[in-house]
Amino acid sequence: MTTSKPTVFIVDDDASVLKAVARLLRSAGFKNALFSSAQQFLDEHDSNASGCLVLDVAMPKMNGLALQQTLAAQNSELPIIFLTGNGDIPMSVRAIKQGAVDFLTKPVNDSDLISAIQNAIETNQTTRQARSKLHELQQRLATLTPREREVLSHVVSGKKNKQIALELGTVEKTIKVHRAHLMAKLQVRSLAELVKMSERLGIISSPLE
């Protein structure tokens, strides 16, 4: 997934601006996809693709800020760069608060736009990598039997095998076997690694939270 080239999605209702920005990004070597309205973007874009979104604010029917909200509601991770002709401070504050990575005004200088896009794509890739790692861990966790999950939660809460056996009404040897199995399935070699992974998976809460 991360190996495919990131796409820059551009949404602008002004056809000539859309075409010109697309050309600029093509000249800088970015792959891009063009949409003339927010609705068209929602209907047609590949939600799994990596990259970023360059979004105009003032558009008929659904404007850029409304699209941003809709995407947030859909848990989209696509970083948004706003590109507007007449943006004011309240509008930019609102956009940034809602998670936009940048807020640029037209006419935009090529280097500003390109560096914003590069940053956004990097952010997106980091996020996507973190998410795919988590996904992998979750898949490993899913291979555990219910008994092994039970043992895991006791182990990471710092209990000894003997205590666990007592609580689960079994012998210490059985717990040792479960413990060896779950560490193999989760591909960890030490208790410390197991605790760290459990934290990321949300089995135990982080001490910082």
């Binding site: 601006v17 010109a20 600029l24 093509r26 000249s27 037209k106």
Partner: peptide
């Protein structure tokens, strides 16, 4: 501003 934006991006692309 729209045509000016398009002109700038086009020129820099060129």
């Amino acid at each position: 501003n729209q045509p000016l934006a398009a002109i700038l991006s086009n020129a820099q692309a060129a």
